[in-house]
Computed example of a mutant assay.
Amino acid sequence: MDVQTAYQKTIIFATLKHLENNQTIADSELPYVIHLSNVAMEILIASHNTTHFDLLFATQVALLHDTLEDTNTSFEELEREFGIEIAEGVSALTKREDLPKEEKMIDSLNRISKLRKEVWAVKLADRITNLQKPPKSWDDLKRRKYKEEAKVILEKLKGGNDYLENRLKAKIEEYEQYLD
């Protein structure tokens, strides 16, 4: 399957799943698919700046990265629709609900680090995309913690994708403007 066909199939699947919950981007009326397509855009650009990069796989994982965490999609459904490797990538990017909040991110990063570098790239791209202007509801402490989490992601996934690592470093520096 070519990347364009896979992109269309995957974005339609993900959009419909997120629409079931009427999910929007925080503090906006914008449909959640904008976030998904922004993560995929980071992956598309990264692929042009990265050797030995499986764009087809990474694009599908990028578009699906929040389906297990934020929708009623099951692992089995993802596996059936997109294959085991994509389902496993999305699962690694999903925080486990059975863990205490302070352990969720590290657990996910540990699972991501055992998979292909394209999964690492999706996590980097997701945080790059999320380091935009924070939601109005976040206080300074929440914004600072989010920035510190970004540094942990960058450190834990070091060596996964030079291009996206440099983008994330720059976004972390830019995020300083949102801190009191």
Rank of each mutant, 00 (worst) to 15 (best):
Y7L: 08
Q8R: 14
T10R: 04
F13A: 04
F13G: 06
A14H: 01
L16D: 15
E20K: 10
E20W: 04
E20A: 13
T24C: 09
D27Q: 09
D27A: 06
D27M: 05
S28I: 00
E29V: 10
Y32C: 00
V33M: 14
I34R: 14
H35A: 07
H35R: 06
L36C: 06
S37V: 13
S37N: 15
T50N: 01
T51H: 09
H52S: 13
D54R: 13
A58S: 06
D66F: 04
L68F: 04
L68M: 05
E69S: 11
E69Q: 14
D70G: 07
N72Q: 14
E76W: 03
E79C: 09
E81M: 13
G83V: 04
G83Q: 04
I86H: 05
A87D: 02
V90C: 11
L93W: 01
R96D: 15
K101H: 14
E102S: 11
E103V: 02
M105E: 15
I112H: 03
L115G: 04
R116G: 08
R116K: 15
K117T: 07
W120T: 07
A121N: 02
L124P: 00
I128T: 03
I128A: 12
T129R: 11
N130E: 15
P135Q: 14
P135N: 12
K136E: 09
R144L: 11
R144G: 01
K156E: 04
G159D: 05
G159W: 04
L164V: 11
N166M: 09
K169I: 09
K171I: 05
E174Y: 12
L179Q: 04
D180T: 05
